[in-house]
Amino acid sequence: MKKISILAALLVMLTMTFTSCKEDTQPRLEYPTEFVLNRPAYADQLILVEQNGFIRFTCSQANYGLATTPTYQLQVSKTEDFAEYQTVDYTTTKADMVIPAEPFAMAVCSLYEWTEASQAEQSVPVWVRCISSVPNASDKYTIASNAVKLEQVKVYFAVKLPAAIYLIGQPSGWDINSTAMPLYETEIGSKVYKGTYTIEAGQFQFRFYDELGDWDYYSIGAQDTDSPVGISFTDGEYAGECCYDPTTKSAGKGSWECTTWEGGDVEMTVNLQNKTVVFRAL
């Protein structure tokens, strides 16, 4: 009996060993170590990146070991070591990369910290590299290419501006196309909007829209139901939640209304990150 038990145990161990070996030989992605961005033939020439145009690069796929479809994204820098850089806000899965002019120009303008159109009238050197990554995979599968220098790049002035939402209601005449009362992002991409306006007595009823022209979509309101929600100020301030779902018809249609408002300036903050609002009487 003891011999049989020992033989059975050995058989199990052998089976586990063979199974383990089989699993170890399964095809899998490898962590990449080589990735090449090709130097464009035009690298030494004056490159004009014009509005509605494009700039083109090619690369060879990183050595992932298996056929896969990486995502490519460019970065630009003033120096070869990329101590400081800007990322081009455009991705592609094609090794023959046709990059629209706008995101490339925005990255270069931001890199050189240009704030006026006249600054973009000069040509500047730009180092470019490409980042290859595998969607939904570990960062270990992300690799940066070699850096390529473009000697003379002239882009048009393209600067990303803060986004805006618009107050639509009694103060703006309930005009769904009115841009008269915008609230701007406090920082680009923050989704926190702020503005200060005079609201007359009897006019405190409104909601916001992040796109104009359509009553049924893009509304930011006190509730989804299309009816006013009464609010009041405590120590000169109201704070509450907002409803916002731009993909759902008639979402966020409930306006804020303060029937006791006696008129004056209101500082408005709308935070679409956590869906809250703060109205402060000044």
Rank of each mutant, 00 (worst) to 15 (best):
K275T: 10
K94G: 03
L74Y: 00
W215Q: 09
A163E: 12
V278P: 03
P70T: 09
I188M: 00
Q205H: 04
G65D: 09
P125R: 11
R207T: 05
G202E: 07
V155H: 06
W127K: 05
V153D: 06
E80T: 12
E241M: 10
V159C: 11
A251R: 07
T68H: 00
K78V: 06
S145L: 10
V153W: 01
S172G: 08
V153K: 06
S60L: 09
G252V: 09
E237N: 08
K149H: 02
S77R: 00
D175V: 11
A147P: 02
L46N: 13
E237T: 14
A201H: 06
Y141P: 01
G236A: 11
C130I: 09
F35K: 05
M181W: 14
N146H: 03
G252Y: 01
R39S: 14
E113R: 12
S20C: 10
R207S: 06
C59D: 04
Y193V: 05
Q152N: 15
C258I: 02
T33R: 11
L66D: 08
A144F: 09
S250L: 11
I168S: 05
Q45G: 05
V88A: 06
V88F: 04
I231L: 13
Q205M: 12
W174Y: 14
Y166R: 01
D265G: 01
A117S: 15
V76E: 08
C59M: 08
Q119I: 07
Y166Q: 01
D226Q: 13
S60Q: 14
G264A: 01
A43E: 10
E257Y: 05
V88Q: 05
T68F: 02
D224F: 01
Y31P: 00
G230L: 14
P182F: 04
A137Q: 12
Y31I: 15
S110W: 02
K194P: 03
K154L: 03
A120D: 06
Y90L: 07
Q51I: 10
E34W: 04
I220P: 05
T71Y: 11
T91Y: 01
Q119G: 12
L7Y: 14
R39E: 15
L282Q: 14
F82S: 08
L167H: 00
Q122W: 08
P125G: 07
Y217C: 10
V128E: 07
Q75R: 12
P70C: 13
M13D: 02
G264P: 09
T15F: 13
C243N: 03
R280V: 11
F18R: 06
E267V: 14
D81K: 12
R207E: 03
Y72V: 11
S118R: 13
T58M: 06
D265C: 00
T234I: 14
A222V: 07
